[in-house]
């Protein structure tokens, strides 16, 4: 399900909850809204095999039954794969997200290699083109410290190049894998066609005792 936006996904979950008869708490304020949250929402057009959704409910739910109810309504391609009861926290789960891993596929990868990747990363600055939030003008930004790893996957041969990477994905700092892929491709002298680079998020990580672990592991299941 690559083509629905964050807002649409949000609406879909709200609707699925209503359909499943799961009540959610509302925020207190002038315009009360449902206490539900999609963690670090993906850009339109990205795929993912591991996303997180949290909700606050006044009900005493059987979490697995609830997940099954929701799955019965959700369209093909969106499915709850695990569920946890977590303590009520001051901040939502997005605040615990630190890094995310991605798989990037570039259709014409003949010029890409592990060696090129090392050269790409060993420069003083690794820049991507970003749109300035205020002026909407494209600006260069150094993202070197937001890259934990960036490597063409082992055995990636043939035409398509597959890159695995671990990038910063936190509320205050986020590196878009597509911008990085484009920057790398152009470093290698490639200019892939618009829409031809495919991105799949593999996992979102949080910090536990100083180590990066999948968000789910912050809350050991019963």
């Amino acid at each position: 399900m690559r083509y629905i936006s964050h807002l649409d996904l949000h609406r879909l979950f709200k609707r699925s909850l209503k359909k499943a008869g799961i009540a959610v708490d509302y925020s207190k304020g002038y315009n009360p809204h449902e206490m539900i949250n999609v963690v670090q929402p993906l850009s339109l057009g990205f795929e993912s095999v591991s996303e997180y959704f949290e909700l606050e409910t006044p009900m005493d739910l059987d979490k697995d039954e609830a997940a099954a109810e929701l799955n019965a309504f959700l369209p093909e391609g969106i499915k709850f794969t695990a569920s946890r009861k977590i303590p009520l926290q001051k901040k939502n789960l997005s605040a615990y997200s630190e890094y995310a891993s991605y798989e990037i596929r570039i259709p014409d990868g003949r010029l890409l290699s592990a060696e090129k990747a090392r050269a790409f990363l060993s420069r003083d600055k690794v820049t991507v083109i970003k749109k300035d939030k205020k002026t909407k003008q494209p600006v260069e930004k150094d993202v070197k410290n937001m890259i934990k790893s960036f490597e063409p996957a082992e055995g990636a041969e043939g035409e398509e190049a597959v890159i695995h990477c671990l990038l910063r994905c936190a509320t205050n700092e986020n590196l878009n894998p597509l911008s990085l892929a484009e920057s790398f491709a152009s470093f290698c002298g490639l200019s892939p066609e618009k829409g031809s680079v495919r991105v799949t998020r593999l996992e979102i990580y949080g910090l536990k005792e100083g180590a990066l672990v999948p968000l789910l592991e912050l809350y050991p299941g019963e």
């Binding site: 690559r2 083509y3 629905i4 936006s5 649409d8 339109l44 057009g45 309504f73 959700l74 369209p75 093909e76 391609g77 618009k194 829409g195 031809s196």
Partner: peptide
């Protein structure tokens, strides 16, 4: 699949909605 990334609101063209 090849053209969806190039158009606005691609979900208009994918179907698969609940019900």
């Amino acid at each position: 699949e090849t053209i969806l990334p190039l158009v606005e609101k691609p979900a208009r063209y994918i179907g698969g909605e609940p019900n």
